[in-house]
Structures are given as C-alpha cells and as structure tokens.
Amino acid sequence: MAKVTIDGIEVEVADGTTILNAARQIGGEVVPPAMCYYSSLKDTGGKCRVCLVKVTQGSAKDPRPMPKLVASCRTPVMDGMVVQNITSPEVLEARKGVVEFLLLNHPLDCPVCDQAGECDLQNLSYEHGVGKTRYEEDRRTFEKIDIGDKIKLHMTRCILCYRCTFVADQLTQERVHGVLNRGDASEISTYIEKAVDNDFSGNMIDVCPVGALTDKTFRFKSRVWFTKPLDAHRDCDKCCGKVVLWTKGDDVLRVSARKDQYNEVKEYICNECRYDHKDMKDWTIEGPRHIDRHSVISQNHYEKIDMQKLKLDIDRQLTFQKGKQLPETTNP
C-alpha cells in the first residue's frame, strides 16, 4: 500500500496504482480530466496531456520533486508522494494550453454534432478552455468516411486519443484500422473502406471522446438531451447484455453501453445488442438511467436527492478547501 497526498487530501492506495486512479478514489474536483486514458483498455493514456499534474515530492524515500509535469494516468504512485492538481497554477496553465491545442483543429461544429451533450471535449473546454481562439489559420479538414457499415468516421473532429485503435486491438480478433500519416496530418483510417466488420466494432463509438466516430443508425435522429435514457438488459450469448436505451416515446433511437461517472465503459456490448434490437419488446427495462446532475441530458429528468451522497460530497469539498490553504511548497 502507498500513501499519497493529492491537493492536500491523503489517500491510501494499492502499489502500482496511477496518480489518476488514486485521485479517482478521492473523487470530486481533484480528479484530473482524461481524454485518452480509458480504464478498461490496457496501455491507453499519456497522449492527450490534459491530465498533467505536478509532483512536488517524489516519495518518502526520495523527496525531490519531479522536474516536469507528469501524465497522471501513466505515472504510478509512490509511498509518500505529494501531488498538486488544481491547487497548482502551473498545472492549470498547462492544462489550459492543452485544451487550446486540442481545440485548435477541432471544427467546433457542436450544433450539428451528434456527440454534443455527451462530449468529453465539450465538458473539458467549458471547464478549462477560453472563450476565444487565438488561431487565425484554416483548420485541417478531412472527408467523412464510412468505416464498417454502421460507423461514420468524421476525422475532422478527431483529437487522436488512439482509444478506438486500442478497442480494435483488445476487443476484436483482428485490427483493421489504425493511424496513418504523421503529425497533424495523421488520421484514423482503414486502408479499405468499410473494412471494419466484427462483433465488437461498435464499441469504437462509445470510447470516442468526441464526435469523430458516430453511430450511423442514430445520426441526426435526435439531440441526445431530448431522449430518455433507460437502463435495460437482455440475454445475449456474446456480451453482458447490459445497455442503456435512448428512447423517445416508445421508439428506441439508440442502444449504447453503460458508462460510469468518468464516461468510461466497463462492460462492452456486442454489435447485435447495439444495432439489431431497437425494439422495447426485446429488452427488460430496469428503470431510468442515472445521469449526472451537471449534464445537459439531465434536464427534465428529476431525481430524488440522495442525502447521504450529498453529505459525502460536502464533506469532501470541505476537506479540499482546507487542503487548498496548505502553504506553497518551497520548490516552485
């Protein structure tokens, strides 16, 4: 076990845990955002650089600070490590920079993007971005292409998190798509159009943090906040069969896997569940899906307040505010 202090809050975690996961055990504001890390996919992370944090004390044994900001999603904790996330102005400044970089070539076509309302990049830029861009040149653009018969790739929106390539590597037998080219010309692609065809390819849509990979059966059907999400399940011999149905009246507009509070899927679903059962009768409905109160999707979805959870939230806030007042470390 290792004891680590993040923004003044101490937590004890198993050896080998990353800083990001340690922060997630604390929860709340101290959790660094993540655009490319995905807990249920191996080796993801380290690429987007939004989760950068400052390590002011390496470990109890070696208290020297780390010279650069480190990617919290890939840096394991050490016993006695002291980490600054949102209490460090340097980290916030760097994060602001990264958000600006991510938005540089992003088309910001949110009004016509199907991901709007459930987009990680939208959330991130609301929190850390600035209102105005300093970029004056043309943005890079790509043609929209079909990869597989059910998935539309809108490469212009892609932030190159590489998550979808990890899905293809780890969930399916053969990877038929990858990253072509280099630098800001690099793109996710298949050499042969519509080549992506396997039982779990649909999960690429769920892991995509932006609207680069969208479900062709749902494209332009409805804004996601006009739909009513329901937890449902069915017996499936290929996957767990636990899904969220995005419904309007009696129509099932979309089926997706269940995402946790960090927008990450823990149990993947197969393409049959995703595309072929768009009928309420095929599913056992469990009840309305819990949607985070801050999300635009939660509009008009009233939920009873869980008093215990609220108290926990307040307690954590209080500890955090105390942590903020800790004296600045001597090593800037």
Partner: peptide, 14 residues
C-alpha cells in the same frame, strides 16, 4: 512531429 501527443502535434503546426 509524430502526432501522438497534443501539444506537439498541434503546437508545432501553429
């Protein structure tokens, strides 16, 4: 730039 991490991919072009 290899295009793997965002500051370098976008920043060098900018």
């Amino acid at each position: 730039s290899c295009g793997q991490c965002s500051p370098c991919r976008e920043g060098t072009g900018w």
